[in-house]
Design a protein around this nucleic acid. Structure first.
Lengths: 371, 371
DNA sequence: AAAAATGGGTCAAAAAAAGACCCACTAGGG
DNA sequence: CCCTAGTGGGTCTTTTTTTGACCCATTTTT
């Protein structure tokens, strides 16, 4: 609606423009993140013929945006600066800026960043979200604070994209919660350590065995060392976490059929490091562990940075971050549009009011479903 | 240089964009001015095959910008508003806005309007200039003033494009100078009358036979009626005129070879209703007639609106309007770029600093020369 | 009523794009 | 050290798109 009239006009007079634009942008972005990279890898990634990709490569080369050498394709400095500088205009062109505004109103969070693309078609989107979250994180950092990070691929992406540069002094990085069985790269402990390293900050970890009983946890709580780190964790003023769909997370934890059934009955849709949320944003269940007490989170944590992408996570995102005025929400186009769809279906806004452009990966919507 | 970064980026990532954009814009503009119009006429006009034009038409139809009926092709209301609303952004996209700024500095006139295209390839540009000039004119009008208009196709275009709407009361329209043999449609008298009619204003004409001797003119001066209208003319506070190249105007007037030679010797390059200018902006010769005394024009006329287009008129334009702080200059892209070329060749600015886009009519520069 | 212009349809030729290879070369790991 | 996986570039054929050259029925204009 509030599209720049120029750009509205441009796509009227040149309807093929959005497609070209998105295609080239995605290509550049992919090269940016995985350079040096070869034609064939790229073609496989975008699921197009090698020849058609070659043509695009030739165009971009002629434009001086990429350098194609025998080691692979790399962005030139011009290309690099383009990829970063075009993002805002592309976002407004694709209507993502208005998307952000709508979500801001709907979810009542502190700020919303929508990244172009859909995590489910294009894994680069994950890094892009990570980059956006990392930028927010750096702005929130103050001397002496405690930063709690959660596990998962999204948080790992934040750690990856965080620029290696000293942070204000005295910052401590801790995991938000102790050992919730994951691949080690995606464990909160690992990520906390990596973030700390990037920030040149200290960190404390909380190593716990998976799936302990309540009694065992109570025992551990009496350990001085553990109590110490738990207090540290609960004094965090920044929290970064991703969001999982309840079903997927339960399945991944190997939940028993009756547990699954209970979750379903309780209407669990979203999950945040072991806590399950229903549609009204209430915590309906949690996996026994130690760490941040989510229930009274609002009283202590100043900034929560939530990173989640992929259209299938839309419901979970709404459930988790709805009406959290302390949250920054970083998500992708796919999830954002899906969320608005859900809301408009509920009758909050006329359903016909749709987003103007389709984020077509290489061509049309067939790619939207695959991968 | 001061291009919007967005647009700079857009043409980097989509190099085919400027071409498409200009092509479609020209097509829409042509339809706008000569609707309803048929495929074949359009194809002939743009000198392209009928089939390729048909494809463009289909695209624009699918975009809802044009309506194609059996009477011909017309702009829809969407298309109409697009054509007018896109002009500013297209101008900035094509670098015309910076062109205007440069010319403003160089020529030291009051304002410069550069219209996209080149009169020599695309006659529609003439109407476009006329529209721009008409807009300026309307802004200059005040009650009771006298408006002097000159002859020529450019002024005729202004009259054509002037919206039919009442002007402030008491305005009088007069020809700038008496009968300088032209086709009747392009005579100052005719145009003055048409302008007056559009403005619902009064007009007075000055009918003189062509090429009178000085003695005869002196005699006429003593006629009361003539004296009266001459005084009126010389009390004009707005003047609209075109510009001719010295050579062309002399030839068109059927000047004798020795006259031509003399003009050349005196370095005459530009012409304004019978007055010939050299490169330094001095009047070196004039055809005997009656009307506005150009020599001390600056003292009386408040606003001069100069309309001229076509790259071959570049020199003439510079000669005539250079350093006239009372002049509005309306010209086309072709003339504007040529003027900057001339200046940069003189070393005022580095010659490498070129305009980024080529106004390619249907395809590339071959069309720049023809017609 | 005739003539000129309109949009739409069709089919073959031409051009552009895409697919499917192969080759020489480089880098990186055993 | 070699060897393998990955790189860009070349080239051929096939496919798709674009373009050219028509004709036709209809409408508009003269």
């Amino acid at each position: 609606m509030t599209l720049t009239p120029d750009q509205e006009n441009l796509s009227l007079i040149a309807p093929e423009l959005p497609e070209i634009l998105v295609r080239r942008y995605r290509l550049l972005r992919k090269i940016y993140y995985s350079a040096p990279v070869g034609r064939r890898s790229l073609a496989a990634y975008f699921q197009v013929g090698e020849r058609v990709l070659r043509r695009e490569i030739e165009i971009l080369r002629d434009q001086g945006l990429i350098a194609v050498e025998s080691r692979g394709i790399t962005l030139t400095s011009a290309g690099e600066s383009l990829v970063t500088s075009i993002t805002p205009s592309l976002k407004s062109f694709l209507g993502l800026t208005v998307l952000e505004e709508k979500l801001l109103k709907l979810l009542k969070v502190k700020d919303v960043i929508v990244v172009p693309g859909d995590l489910e078609n294009d894994e680069v989107v994950l890094w892009e979200m990570g980059r956006a979250a990392a930028r927010i994180l750096r702005e929130c950092l103050k001397p002496g604070i405690v930063l709690a990070v959660s596990g998962g691929t999204s948080c790992a992406a934040v750690a990856d994209m965080l620029p290696e540069a000293p942070a204000p002094s005295g910052i401590k990085v801790v995991p938000a919660r102790g050992g919730l069985g994951e691949v080690v790269d995606y464990q909160a402990n690992t990520i906390a350590a990596r973030v700390a390293q990037k920030l040149r900050a200290n960190y404390r970890l909380l190593h716990l065995p998976d799936s302990l009983s309540q009694e065992a946890l109570q025992m551990l709580l009496r350990e001085k060392k553990i109590k110490e780190i738990l207090d540290l964790i609960n004094s965090a003023s920044i929290l970064i976490h991703g969001i999982g769909t309840a079903e997927e997370m339960a399945r991944r934890r190997g939940a028993a059929p009756e547990e699954m059934e209970r979750l379903r009955e309780q209407g669990a849709v979203g999950e945040v490091f072991g806590f399950f949320y229903n549609n009204r944003g209430e915590i309906v269940e949690h996996i026994p562990s130690l760490g941040l007490y989510l229930e009274d989170l609002g009283n202590r944590v100043e900034n929560v940075i939530v990173v989640a992408g992929g259209r299938r996570k839309a419901k979970a995102i709404v459930a988790v971050v709805g009406n959290h005025p302390r949250d920054f929400l970083v998500l992708d186009e796919g999830a954002a549009k899906r969320i608005l769809e859900l809301y408009s279906r509920k009758g909050d806004t006329p359903p016909s009011e749709e987003c103007p452009h389709v984020m077509s990966p290489w061509n049309a919507e067939n790619n939207l479903s695959q991968l």
